[in-house]
Amino acid sequence: MTRATAGARAAPALLGLLGLAVFALVFEVAPRLGVVPADYAPPTSRVLAAAGEQVGRPAFWAALADTLLTWGTGLGIAVVAGVGAGVLIGAVPFLRAATATTVEFLRPIPSVALIPLVIVLYGSTIRSTVVLVVYAAFWQVLVQVLYGVADLDPVARDTARSYRLGRRLQLRYLLWPTALPYVLTGIRLAAAVALILAVTGELVIGSPGLGKEIDLAQQGGAVPAVYALILVTGLLGVLANVGLRVLERHVLAWHPSSRREVTPS
């Protein structure tokens, strides 16, 4: 590789870093010049200092662990249930036809509508928030799996039938490889939604986690800490997204790249 092409490849990444730096700089300078009130929008350096302070607090790590637990539990349940239900519904035409309207009706119900319900049923516990996370993430996975199962190649299906592949073998060698890319897309979409709902639940319901810390910091008037914690939730989201993309590429390394990824719906 010549230096010029390496440079051309590195340039976008450098520009991106520059973009982040300019953003940080604007938020450093604007409060200091009084463009925005410094009390409510502290300069970047103070937010970063507050973030450093948070990292030194054991309570922060406990909250982070709680958020990860809520997120992971909810996402795990949603993925298992979504894949199981999706494969079952998708493989049986009658079930597919019979559940279509129900899915269309239940899916758009905003899971935050369930907040008062889970409060009266389970109180300010992690369980309440997990219910919200599962409800929101389940549909993302289910719908992608349904798309995936429907995407079965007719030639491959007929081949499998000609060779009299049994149900189990068809599941393993026909259905699963077709549906896998959709499953992974579903997981990635679900992970983002699950994080939103985990933090939201903590913020509104008061179950332990980063969302609750944000609420406490705001009520205590610790404005830089509020921004620092929001920064952490954003980083968490970026990490999840990048991590799942890497996983996707790794798991699907065998996959003909010509197969288009379904547009997220």
Partner: peptide, 19 residues
Amino acid sequence: AFLEPLLEFLRAIPPPVLV
């Protein structure tokens, strides 16, 4: 290229915490 990482980050923030 300039804005991509920044937008990815802003998008990843759960919107309700901005309230």
